[in-house]
Amino acid sequence: MRFVSALVIGLVFGLGIMLSGMANPAKVLNFFDIAGTWDPSLAFVMGGALVVTAIGYRLVFRSAQPMFAPRFLVPTRKDIDVKLVGGSAVFGIGWGLSGFCPGGLVPALGIGDSAPWIAFAAIVAGMMAARVLSSLQARQKLAPGE
């Protein structure tokens, strides 16, 4: 049941992405292009998603625990640091260059074109690079004499 429910939920998520236009770089880039061929559609995606999620989460959190897990795992950090702001800024630059964000990209993989797979390989490479960089930084902090 855990597996089947996650599969169906992923499918609903993917259908939402496809219908909304988030999987289409032309539409995503036009959302950002206010000075040019502006297409405000994606504001409606965010609007629809936020209203449903904000209300739905409130209802869900009334339960003591999720259906198939011992507890809700929700991020609790509140600090705003350079990693958060800088990382997000870099993400935005990449999104603006490629037109693909991770959520928009994964369903696009199923269309069968090569472009989403190229972007996917690059995203995975970037994630790996970030992992290696962070672990190097962590090691440097632990090194004696630093």
């Binding site: 996650a6 939402g16 992405i17 995606v45 629809g48 449903v52």
Partner: peptide, 23 residues
């Protein structure tokens, strides 16, 4: 279409929290 797609994305996010307790 975008509003409907967004609502489905939200529905999936809520369902994942309700079933697996995950973001």
């Amino acid at each position: 279409m975008s509003l409907a797609g967004g609502a489905l994305i939200g529905l999936a996010a809520v369902a994942l929290m309700a079933t697996h307790g995950r973001i």
